[in-house]
């Protein structure tokens, strides 16, 4: 096979000579818009957060009251259609909190729909969006996001290995913003609704590495859990997806490139050893406890 001809054919393609210049201009414009948005978020910070009680051991009702709503999080990332979707009847308010290490992770809510993201206008298929809040249990504010937004928020699907179906392979994206000492993660989980006939999870953990066999275990029935004694902060939620969104054919098309096929039978996933440590116990408490 003549791979030199393949390389020459690609080299002969005529791309726009001003592609880089044009692209940089588009990106700078978008970055300026984002900066304006961030400035407005800082402006409306509430001073009452500074009076948070340092010894607070659970996510208090007052902390919940101070939180942005899922709709406000979407609004502050510039997605007005998505913000409206989080307000309508199809949105699901979850507000389930997991305490892990020194932090509380709250799955606030989720919604699904097409054309909800003005920043990615070419979405004419249903996408699922979820908002997660991260707060310190001692009431101290989280630092600025830029100082290390080193967390992963990823969907996982029962019946599929976490290293095969996750935020990387499904092409998800996450926006992170800080307001009133809380970090918010807005996850665009792509066409996750297609998997709604499975148990669909949302996993949160420290670090940016993709899901691996060191982090997760898969039971015989396909259910997924964090590895026993997983030492870092982590939380796992079940997403209450509307089963009517299930589309097994679309789901299969999405995962097909990442599943072990006939050519990969018997192969093992990339292994990652979990560092030993005293494992934090996960505690689920109602958000309004």
């Amino acid at each position: 096979m003549d791979w030199k001809a393949y390389r020459e054919a690609l080299d002969a393609l005529s791309f726009s000579p001003d592609f880089r210049e044009r692209t940089e201009a588009v990106l700078r414009r978008r970055a300026q818009e984002q900066e304006k948005e961030r400035s407005s978020v800082k402006f409306i910070k509430k001073p009452v957060v500074a009076a948070a009680v340092a010894a607070l051991l659970v996510v208090s009702a007052s902390a919940v009251a101070l939180r942005l709503s899922a709709s406000q999080v979407a609004e502050r990332t510039g997605r007005t259609a998505l913000a409206a979707a989080f307000e309508d009847n199809n949105a699901v308010a979850v507000n389930e909190t997991v305490q892990t290490g020194d932090y509380a992770v709250t799955l606030m809510g989720l919604t699904s729909g097409a054309n909800l993201d003005e920043l990615n206008a070419d979405l004419d298929v249903d996408h699922t969006y979820a908002v997660v809040a991260l707060e310190r249990l001692d009431g101290a504010p989280m630092g600025q996001v830029a100082s290390g937004a080193d967390y992963t928020v990823t969907p996982l699907v029962s019946g599929y290995d976490p290293w095969a179906v996750n935020n990387w392979t499904l092409g998800c994206s996450v926006d992170v913003l800080e307001a009133d000492g809380t970090w918010y993660f807005l996850l665009d989980a792509g066409q996750l609704g297609a998997f709604a006939d499975h148990t669909v999870y949302l996993a949160f953990y420290e670090g940016a590495a993709p899901p691996s066999a060191g982090k997760f275990t898969v039971a015989g029935d396909g259910s997924i859990a964090f590895a026993q004694d997983y030492p870092e902060e982590h939380a796992l939620f079940v997403l209450p997806l509307d089963e009517s969104l299930a589309d097994p054919a679309a789901a299969q098309a999405l995962v097909e490139p990442f599943l072990p096929g006939e050519d990969t039978a018997g192969e093992t996933p990339i292994q990652e050893s979990a560092p030993a440590s005293d494992s934090p116990v996960l505690t689920i408490v109602p958000a309004d406890a």
Partner: peptide
């Protein structure tokens, strides 16, 4: 361009990828 039928399609796709990088701002 190895996946799409024209250079123009490839340019659109790559520009959208850079925009997605700007929106998502993953920490590498």
């Amino acid at each position: 361009a190895a996946r799409l039928p024209s250079a123009a399609d490839a340019e659109d796709a790559v520009q959208e990828v850079f925009l997605k990088l700007l929106d998502a701002r993953p920490v590498f």
